[in-house]
Design a binder for these strands. Structure first.
Lengths: 210, 210
DNA sequence: AAGCCTCTGTTAAATTCTTGTCAAAAAAAT
DNA sequence: ATTTTTTTGACAAGAATTTAACAGAGGCTT
Protein backbone atom coordinates (compact mmCIF):
# COMPACT_ATOMS: atom_id res chain seq x y z
CA UNK A 1 0.00 0.00 0.00
CA UNK A 2 2.00 2.99 1.20
CA UNK A 3 5.25 1.56 -0.01
CA UNK A 4 7.55 4.55 -0.06
CA UNK A 5 9.95 4.53 2.81
CA UNK A 6 10.21 7.67 4.90
CA UNK A 7 13.78 8.78 5.38
CA UNK A 8 15.22 9.08 8.85
CA UNK A 9 16.03 12.70 8.05
CA UNK A 10 12.31 13.38 7.92
CA UNK A 11 11.57 11.26 10.97
CA UNK A 12 14.15 13.20 12.96
CA UNK A 13 12.28 16.40 12.30
CA UNK A 14 8.85 15.13 13.31
CA UNK A 15 9.32 15.38 17.08
CA UNK A 16 10.31 19.00 16.73
CA UNK A 17 7.21 19.78 14.67
CA UNK A 18 5.24 17.94 17.29
CA UNK A 19 6.70 20.06 20.05
CA UNK A 20 5.97 23.35 18.30
CA UNK A 21 2.47 22.29 17.34
CA UNK A 22 1.81 21.32 20.94
CA UNK A 23 2.89 24.74 22.08
CA UNK A 24 0.73 26.43 19.47
CA UNK A 25 -2.23 24.29 20.41
CA UNK A 26 -1.78 25.09 24.10
CA UNK A 27 -1.68 28.77 23.37
CA UNK A 28 -4.94 28.53 21.48
CA UNK A 29 -3.74 28.83 17.90
CA UNK A 30 -6.19 27.10 15.58
CA UNK A 31 -4.57 27.29 12.19
CA UNK A 32 -1.13 27.89 10.83
CA UNK A 33 0.44 28.16 7.40
CA UNK A 34 3.72 26.59 6.45
CA UNK A 35 5.11 30.09 6.10
CA UNK A 36 4.19 31.10 9.65
CA UNK A 37 5.60 27.85 11.00
CA UNK A 38 8.68 28.45 8.92
CA UNK A 39 9.21 31.81 10.60
CA UNK A 40 8.83 30.34 14.07
CA UNK A 41 10.90 27.21 13.59
CA UNK A 42 13.53 28.57 11.25
CA UNK A 43 13.20 25.94 8.60
CA UNK A 44 12.01 26.55 5.05
CA UNK A 45 8.30 26.50 4.37
CA UNK A 46 9.05 24.22 1.48
CA UNK A 47 10.58 21.64 3.75
CA UNK A 48 7.63 21.78 6.10
CA UNK A 49 5.15 21.15 3.32
CA UNK A 50 7.32 18.43 1.86
CA UNK A 51 7.71 16.73 5.23
CA UNK A 52 4.02 16.71 6.03
CA UNK A 53 3.16 15.54 2.57
CA UNK A 54 5.14 12.38 3.06
CA UNK A 55 2.25 11.22 5.19
CA UNK A 56 -0.68 12.64 3.24
CA UNK A 57 -2.32 15.96 2.68
CA UNK A 58 -2.94 17.46 6.08
CA UNK A 59 -3.43 21.00 4.90
CA UNK A 60 -5.87 22.94 2.82
CA UNK A 61 -5.06 25.41 0.11
CA UNK A 62 -5.86 28.96 1.05
CA UNK A 63 -6.26 27.98 4.72
CA UNK A 64 -3.13 26.26 5.94
CA UNK A 65 -3.01 23.51 8.54
CA UNK A 66 -5.35 22.96 11.44
CA UNK A 67 -3.05 22.91 14.44
CA UNK A 68 -4.90 20.41 16.58
CA UNK A 69 -5.55 18.05 13.71
CA UNK A 70 -1.97 18.15 12.55
CA UNK A 71 -0.73 17.70 16.11
CA UNK A 72 -2.79 14.55 16.48
CA UNK A 73 -1.78 13.21 13.10
CA UNK A 74 1.89 13.56 13.96
CA UNK A 75 1.31 11.97 17.33
CA UNK A 76 -0.21 9.07 15.45
CA UNK A 77 2.65 8.86 13.00
CA UNK A 78 5.10 8.82 15.88
CA UNK A 79 3.11 6.11 17.61
CA UNK A 80 2.41 8.25 20.63
CA UNK A 81 -1.14 7.05 20.99
CA UNK A 82 0.08 3.57 21.81
CA UNK A 83 1.33 2.47 25.19
CA UNK A 84 4.86 1.18 25.67
CA UNK A 85 6.24 -0.67 28.62
CA UNK A 86 9.87 -0.03 29.38
CA UNK A 87 12.44 -1.59 31.62
CA UNK A 88 15.26 0.58 32.80
CA UNK A 89 18.55 -1.17 33.37
CA UNK A 90 20.87 0.80 35.59
CA UNK A 91 19.48 2.87 38.45
CA UNK A 92 22.36 5.31 38.75
CA UNK A 93 21.99 9.04 38.35
CA UNK A 94 21.19 8.85 34.68
CA UNK A 95 18.70 6.04 35.16
CA UNK A 96 17.01 7.96 37.95
CA UNK A 97 16.96 11.11 35.87
CA UNK A 98 15.06 9.28 33.18
CA UNK A 99 12.76 7.49 35.60
CA UNK A 100 11.84 10.78 37.18
CA UNK A 101 11.24 12.46 33.92
CA UNK A 102 7.48 12.42 34.07
CA UNK A 103 6.73 13.74 30.63
CA UNK A 104 7.51 10.41 29.01
CA UNK A 105 4.54 8.86 30.78
CA UNK A 106 2.23 11.44 29.33
CA UNK A 107 3.25 10.17 25.91
CA UNK A 108 2.60 6.56 26.75
CA UNK A 109 6.09 5.47 27.72
CA UNK A 110 5.57 3.68 31.02
CA UNK A 111 8.56 2.71 33.04
CA UNK A 112 7.41 -0.59 34.39
CA UNK A 113 10.56 -2.08 35.86
CA UNK A 114 13.91 -0.85 37.10
CA UNK A 115 16.92 -3.14 37.47
CA UNK A 116 20.40 -2.84 38.87
CA UNK A 117 23.31 -4.97 40.00
CA UNK A 118 24.10 -2.84 43.04
CA UNK A 119 22.81 -4.41 46.25
CA UNK A 120 22.65 -1.01 47.92
CA UNK A 121 20.03 0.07 45.44
CA UNK A 122 18.07 -3.15 44.95
CA UNK A 123 14.86 -3.03 46.97
CA UNK A 124 14.73 0.73 47.10
CA UNK A 125 11.96 2.61 45.41
CA UNK A 126 12.31 5.03 42.55
CA UNK A 127 9.04 6.67 41.68
CA UNK A 128 7.06 3.90 43.39
CA UNK A 129 8.94 1.26 41.47
CA UNK A 130 11.05 -1.18 43.45
CA UNK A 131 14.49 -1.73 41.99
CA UNK A 132 14.92 -5.41 41.17
CA UNK A 133 18.03 -7.55 40.83
CA UNK A 134 19.23 -8.49 37.36
CA UNK A 135 18.39 -12.13 37.94
CA UNK A 136 14.70 -11.25 37.74
CA UNK A 137 15.00 -9.57 34.34
CA UNK A 138 13.85 -12.31 31.97
CA UNK A 139 10.83 -13.30 33.99
CA UNK A 140 9.79 -9.69 34.44
CA UNK A 141 10.04 -8.90 30.75
CA UNK A 142 7.82 -11.83 29.88
CA UNK A 143 5.27 -11.11 32.60
CA UNK A 144 4.88 -7.44 31.78
CA UNK A 145 4.85 -7.29 27.99
CA UNK A 146 7.95 -5.14 27.93
CA UNK A 147 8.76 -3.77 24.50
CA UNK A 148 11.53 -1.24 25.13
CA UNK A 149 14.72 -1.66 27.14
CA UNK A 150 16.59 1.38 28.36
CA UNK A 151 20.30 0.93 28.99
CA UNK A 152 21.72 3.41 31.46
CA UNK A 153 24.66 1.26 32.42
CA UNK A 154 28.41 1.40 31.78
CA UNK A 155 29.62 0.26 28.40
CA UNK A 156 31.27 -2.81 29.87
CA UNK A 157 27.89 -4.30 30.77
CA UNK A 158 25.84 -2.98 27.87
CA UNK A 159 26.44 -5.66 25.24
CA UNK A 160 25.69 -8.53 27.58
CA UNK A 161 22.51 -6.94 28.89
CA UNK A 162 21.40 -6.09 25.36
CA UNK A 163 21.80 -9.73 24.42
CA UNK A 164 19.70 -10.79 27.36
CA UNK A 165 16.97 -8.32 26.46
CA UNK A 166 16.92 -9.46 22.87
CA UNK A 167 16.87 -13.10 23.93
CA UNK A 168 13.72 -12.60 25.96
CA UNK A 169 11.89 -10.73 23.25
CA UNK A 170 12.65 -7.03 23.58
CA UNK A 171 12.96 -5.60 20.09
CA UNK A 172 13.72 -1.97 20.85
CA UNK A 173 16.58 -0.56 22.87
CA UNK A 174 17.23 3.00 23.97
CA UNK A 175 20.95 2.92 24.52
CA UNK A 176 22.85 5.42 26.64
CA UNK A 177 26.00 3.32 26.91
CA UNK A 178 28.93 4.39 24.78
CA UNK A 179 29.04 1.34 22.61
CA UNK A 180 27.45 0.29 19.40
CA UNK A 181 25.28 -2.68 20.23
CA UNK A 182 25.56 -5.66 17.99
CA UNK A 183 22.02 -6.93 17.74
CA UNK A 184 19.99 -8.76 15.09
CA UNK A 185 18.49 -6.74 12.27
CA UNK A 186 14.97 -6.87 13.62
CA UNK A 187 16.01 -5.10 16.82
CA UNK A 188 15.79 -1.32 16.81
CA UNK A 189 18.45 0.65 18.63
CA UNK A 190 18.28 4.35 19.31
CA UNK A 191 21.56 5.65 20.67
CA UNK A 192 22.10 8.63 22.92
CA UNK A 193 25.83 9.15 22.99
CA UNK A 194 26.36 12.13 25.25
CA UNK A 195 30.10 12.32 24.82
CA UNK A 196 29.72 12.46 21.06
CA UNK A 197 27.33 15.34 21.42
CA UNK A 198 29.81 17.20 23.59
CA UNK A 199 32.62 16.54 21.13
CA UNK A 200 30.58 18.04 18.35
CA UNK A 201 30.18 21.16 20.43
CA UNK A 202 33.90 21.14 21.09
CA UNK A 203 34.65 20.86 17.38
CA UNK A 204 32.50 23.85 16.61
CA UNK A 205 34.07 25.93 19.36
CA UNK A 206 37.51 25.28 17.97
CA UNK A 207 36.56 25.76 14.37
CA UNK A 208 35.17 29.16 15.25
CA UNK A 209 38.30 30.27 17.04
CA UNK A 210 40.50 29.44 14.05
CA UNK B 1 43.72 29.26 3.79
CA UNK B 2 41.71 26.10 4.37
CA UNK B 3 38.52 27.73 3.27
CA UNK B 4 36.25 24.78 2.62
CA UNK B 5 33.68 24.33 5.29
CA UNK B 6 33.32 20.88 6.81
CA UNK B 7 29.74 19.69 6.84
CA UNK B 8 28.08 18.79 10.12
CA UNK B 9 27.37 15.36 8.66
CA UNK B 10 31.11 14.74 8.65
CA UNK B 11 31.60 16.30 12.07
CA UNK B 12 28.92 14.04 13.52
CA UNK B 13 30.89 11.00 12.43
CA UNK B 14 34.21 12.08 13.88
CA UNK B 15 33.48 11.20 17.51
CA UNK B 16 32.58 7.69 16.47
CA UNK B 17 35.81 7.28 14.52
CA UNK B 18 37.57 8.63 17.55
CA UNK B 19 35.95 6.07 19.80
CA UNK B 20 36.84 3.14 17.56
CA UNK B 21 40.39 4.34 17.03
CA UNK B 22 40.80 4.69 20.79
CA UNK B 23 39.68 1.12 21.25
CA UNK B 24 42.02 -0.10 18.54
CA UNK B 25 44.89 1.84 20.04
CA UNK B 26 44.18 0.43 23.50
CA UNK B 27 44.19 -3.07 22.15
CA UNK B 28 47.58 -2.52 20.56
CA UNK B 29 46.64 -2.20 16.89
CA UNK B 30 49.22 -0.09 15.09
CA UNK B 31 47.83 0.31 11.61
CA UNK B 32 44.49 -0.07 9.92
CA UNK B 33 43.18 0.25 6.41
CA UNK B 34 39.96 1.98 5.51
CA UNK B 35 38.63 -1.42 4.47
CA UNK B 36 39.33 -3.00 7.84
CA UNK B 37 37.79 -0.04 9.64
CA UNK B 38 34.85 -0.28 7.29
CA UNK B 39 34.28 -3.89 8.32
CA UNK B 40 34.40 -3.03 12.01
CA UNK B 41 32.31 0.14 11.92
CA UNK B 42 29.86 -0.83 9.20
CA UNK B 43 30.35 2.25 7.07
CA UNK B 44 31.81 2.24 3.58
CA UNK B 45 35.56 2.43 3.16
CA UNK B 46 34.99 5.19 0.68
CA UNK B 47 33.25 7.32 3.25
CA UNK B 48 36.01 6.77 5.76
CA UNK B 49 38.69 7.91 3.32
CA UNK B 50 36.59 10.84 2.19
CA UNK B 51 35.93 11.91 5.78
CA UNK B 52 39.56 11.77 6.80
CA UNK B 53 40.63 13.54 3.67
CA UNK B 54 38.59 16.55 4.56
CA UNK B 55 41.31 17.32 7.05
CA UNK B 56 44.36 16.27 5.08
CA UNK B 57 46.07 13.08 4.03
CA UNK B 58 46.49 11.02 7.16
CA UNK B 59 47.10 7.73 5.43
CA UNK B 60 49.72 6.18 3.26
CA UNK B 61 49.11 4.17 0.14
CA UNK B 62 49.90 0.49 0.53
CA UNK B 63 50.03 0.87 4.29
CA UNK B 64 46.81 2.39 5.55
CA UNK B 65 46.46 4.64 8.57
CA UNK B 66 48.60 4.69 11.67
CA UNK B 67 46.11 4.22 14.46
CA UNK B 68 47.77 6.32 17.12
CA UNK B 69 48.60 9.14 14.75
CA UNK B 70 45.09 9.24 13.35
CA UNK B 71 43.61 9.07 16.84
CA UNK B 72 45.60 12.11 17.89
CA UNK B 73 44.80 14.01 14.73
CA UNK B 74 41.10 13.50 15.26
CA UNK B 75 41.42 14.50 18.90
CA UNK B 76 43.04 17.69 17.67
CA UNK B 77 40.36 18.32 15.09
CA UNK B 78 37.70 17.84 17.76
CA UNK B 79 39.55 20.22 20.05
CA UNK B 80 40.06 17.58 22.71
CA UNK B 81 43.57 18.70 23.48
CA UNK B 82 42.26 22.00 24.84
CA UNK B 83 40.79 22.45 28.27
CA UNK B 84 37.23 23.66 28.73
CA UNK B 85 35.65 24.97 31.87
CA UNK B 86 31.98 24.21 32.26
CA UNK B 87 29.26 25.37 34.56
CA UNK B 88 26.38 23.04 35.16
CA UNK B 89 23.05 24.69 35.81
CA UNK B 90 20.58 22.37 37.49
CA UNK B 91 21.79 19.83 40.03
CA UNK B 92 18.92 17.39 39.72
CA UNK B 93 19.36 13.80 38.68
CA UNK B 94 20.40 14.61 35.17
CA UNK B 95 22.84 17.27 36.29
CA UNK B 96 24.34 14.90 38.80
CA UNK B 97 24.55 12.16 36.22
CA UNK B 98 26.61 14.41 34.02
CA UNK B 99 28.73 15.74 36.87
CA UNK B 100 29.57 12.22 37.90
CA UNK B 101 30.40 11.13 34.43
CA UNK B 102 34.17 11.14 34.84
CA UNK B 103 35.14 10.45 31.28
CA UNK B 104 34.43 14.00 30.22
CA UNK B 105 37.26 15.21 32.42
CA UNK B 106 39.69 12.91 30.71
CA UNK B 107 38.89 14.77 27.49
CA UNK B 108 39.47 18.18 28.99
CA UNK B 109 35.90 19.08 29.92
CA UNK B 110 36.20 20.26 33.51
CA UNK B 111 33.06 20.87 35.48
CA UNK B 112 34.08 23.89 37.47
CA UNK B 113 30.84 25.10 38.95
CA UNK B 114 27.41 23.70 39.73
CA UNK B 115 24.38 25.91 40.29
CA UNK B 116 20.82 25.37 41.40
CA UNK B 117 17.83 27.28 42.69
CA UNK B 118 16.83 24.67 45.23
CA UNK B 119 17.91 25.65 48.75
CA UNK B 120 17.98 22.01 49.80
CA UNK B 121 20.78 21.34 47.35
CA UNK B 122 22.73 24.59 47.58
CA UNK B 123 25.80 24.13 49.75
CA UNK B 124 25.93 20.39 49.22
CA UNK B 125 28.84 18.81 47.40
CA UNK B 126 28.69 16.92 44.16
CA UNK B 127 32.01 15.46 43.20
CA UNK B 128 33.88 17.87 45.51
CA UNK B 129 32.10 20.81 43.98
CA UNK B 130 29.85 22.88 46.21
CA UNK B 131 26.51 23.71 44.64
CA UNK B 132 26.10 27.47 44.47
CA UNK B 133 23.01 29.66 44.30
CA UNK B 134 22.04 31.17 40.97
CA UNK B 135 22.82 34.66 42.24
CA UNK B 136 26.52 33.82 42.13
CA UNK B 137 26.46 32.78 38.49
CA UNK B 138 27.74 35.86 36.70
CA UNK B 139 30.63 36.47 39.07
CA UNK B 140 31.66 32.84 38.95
CA UNK B 141 31.66 32.70 35.16
CA UNK B 142 33.91 35.72 34.98
CA UNK B 143 36.28 34.54 37.70
CA UNK B 144 36.75 31.06 36.26
CA UNK B 145 37.03 31.59 32.53
CA UNK B 146 33.96 29.49 31.87
CA UNK B 147 33.39 28.76 28.20
CA UNK B 148 30.61 26.17 28.20
CA UNK B 149 27.29 26.26 30.02
CA UNK B 150 25.36 23.04 30.56
CA UNK B 151 21.63 23.40 31.02
CA UNK B 152 20.04 20.52 32.92
CA UNK B 153 17.03 22.49 34.04
CA UNK B 154 13.33 22.51 33.13
CA UNK B 155 12.35 24.23 29.93
CA UNK B 156 10.58 26.99 31.81
CA UNK B 157 13.88 28.28 33.18
CA UNK B 158 16.14 27.50 30.24
CA UNK B 159 15.70 30.58 28.10
CA UNK B 160 16.27 32.99 30.93
CA UNK B 161 19.37 31.18 32.15
CA UNK B 162 20.72 30.96 28.62
CA UNK B 163 20.36 34.71 28.30
CA UNK B 164 22.26 35.23 31.53
CA UNK B 165 25.05 32.94 30.39
CA UNK B 166 25.33 34.69 27.06
CA UNK B 167 25.28 38.09 28.74
CA UNK B 168 28.28 37.21 30.86
CA UNK B 169 30.31 35.84 27.99
CA UNK B 170 29.56 32.15 27.61
CA UNK B 171 29.49 31.36 23.91
CA UNK B 172 28.70 27.65 23.96
CA UNK B 173 25.73 25.92 25.53
CA UNK B 174 25.04 22.24 25.93
CA UNK B 175 21.30 22.23 26.24
CA UNK B 176 19.27 19.41 27.76
CA UNK B 177 16.09 21.44 28.19
CA UNK B 178 13.31 20.79 25.70
CA UNK B 179 13.33 24.17 24.11
CA UNK B 180 15.15 25.76 21.26
CA UNK B 181 17.22 28.51 22.73
CA UNK B 182 17.06 31.83 21.02
CA UNK B 183 20.60 33.11 21.24
CA UNK B 184 22.79 35.37 19.08
CA UNK B 185 24.50 33.87 16.06
CA UNK B 186 27.91 33.75 17.64
CA UNK B 187 26.68 31.46 20.41
CA UNK B 188 26.92 27.73 19.74
CA UNK B 189 24.17 25.48 21.01
CA UNK B 190 24.31 21.72 21.04
CA UNK B 191 20.96 20.23 21.93
CA UNK B 192 20.27 16.90 23.59
CA UNK B 193 16.56 16.39 23.33
CA UNK B 194 15.89 13.07 25.00
CA UNK B 195 12.20 12.99 24.30
CA UNK B 196 12.83 13.49 20.60
CA UNK B 197 15.20 10.58 20.60
CA UNK B 198 12.58 8.38 22.24
CA UNK B 199 9.94 9.50 19.77
CA UNK B 200 12.18 8.48 16.91
CA UNK B 201 12.44 5.03 18.43
CA UNK B 202 8.69 4.98 18.83
CA UNK B 203 8.19 5.89 15.18
CA UNK B 204 10.39 3.06 14.05
CA UNK B 205 8.65 0.55 16.30
CA UNK B 206 5.30 1.46 14.81
CA UNK B 207 6.49 1.60 11.26
CA UNK B 208 7.81 -1.91 11.62
CA UNK B 209 4.57 -3.27 12.98
CA UNK B 210 2.54 -1.94 10.07
C1' DA C 1 -21.39 35.60 -6.94
C1' DA C 2 -17.29 37.20 -8.99
C1' DG C 3 -12.80 38.08 -8.47
C1' DC C 4 -8.82 38.48 -5.73
C1' DC C 5 -5.78 36.53 -2.54
C1' DT C 6 -3.76 32.85 0.16
C1' DC C 7 -1.52 28.80 0.60
C1' DT C 8 -1.10 23.87 -0.38
C1' DG C 9 0.65 19.87 -2.99
C1' DT C 10 3.59 18.77 -6.59
C1' DT C 11 7.04 18.88 -9.82
C1' DA C 12 11.48 20.50 -11.13
C1' DA C 13 16.00 22.33 -10.09
C1' DA C 14 19.78 22.84 -7.13
C1' DT C 15 22.53 21.31 -3.72
C1' DT C 16 24.61 18.19 -0.67
C1' DC C 17 26.04 13.74 0.58
C1' DT C 18 27.50 9.04 -0.41
C1' DT C 19 29.44 5.48 -3.08
C1' DG C 20 32.19 3.50 -6.79
C1' DT C 21 36.29 3.54 -9.55
C1' DC C 22 40.97 3.89 -10.66
C1' DA C 23 45.72 5.80 -11.28
C1' DA C 24 49.56 6.00 -8.73
C1' DA C 25 52.24 5.58 -4.42
C1' DA C 26 54.28 2.65 -1.39
C1' DA C 27 54.80 -1.74 0.86
C1' DA C 28 55.63 -6.62 0.48
C1' DA C 29 57.06 -10.56 -1.98
C1' DT C 30 59.94 -12.95 -5.11
C1' DA D 1 65.95 -5.29 -8.31
C1' DT D 2 61.70 -6.29 -10.18
C1' DT D 3 57.14 -7.62 -9.83
C1' DT D 4 52.99 -8.05 -7.35
C1' DT D 5 49.87 -6.57 -3.94
C1' DT D 6 47.88 -3.29 -1.07
C1' DT D 7 45.71 0.82 -0.31
C1' DT D 8 45.21 5.72 -0.48
C1' DG D 9 43.51 10.19 -2.48
C1' DA D 10 40.99 12.16 -6.04
C1' DC D 11 37.46 12.36 -9.02
C1' DA D 12 33.26 11.04 -11.14
C1' DA D 13 28.81 9.06 -10.83
C1' DG D 14 24.83 8.27 -8.38
C1' DA D 15 21.50 9.10 -4.48
C1' DA D 16 19.31 11.61 -1.40
C1' DT D 17 17.94 15.84 0.43
C1' DT D 18 16.66 20.51 0.25
C1' DT D 19 14.95 24.50 -1.95
C1' DA D 20 12.46 26.93 -5.42
C1' DA D 21 8.59 27.65 -8.41
C1' DC D 22 3.97 27.48 -9.71
C1' DA D 23 -0.69 25.70 -11.02
C1' DG D 24 -4.82 25.42 -9.03
C1' DA D 25 -7.93 24.58 -4.90
C1' DG D 26 -10.32 27.01 -1.86
C1' DG D 27 -11.00 30.85 1.41
C1' DC D 28 -12.16 35.75 1.82
C1' DT D 29 -13.85 40.29 0.39
C1' DT D 30 -16.77 43.34 -1.75
Amino acid sequence: MDSKEISQAVVSRLPRYFRYLGELKDSGVERISSQELSDIMHVTASQIRQDFNNFGGFGQQGYGYNVEYLYNEIANILGLHEKHHLVLIGAGNLGQAIANYMNFERRGFLITGIFDVNKEIIGKKIKDITVLPMTDLEQFVKDNAIDIGVLTIPKSAAKEVADRLVACGVHAIWNFAHVDLDVPDYVLVENVHLSESLMKLSYNIHRKSK
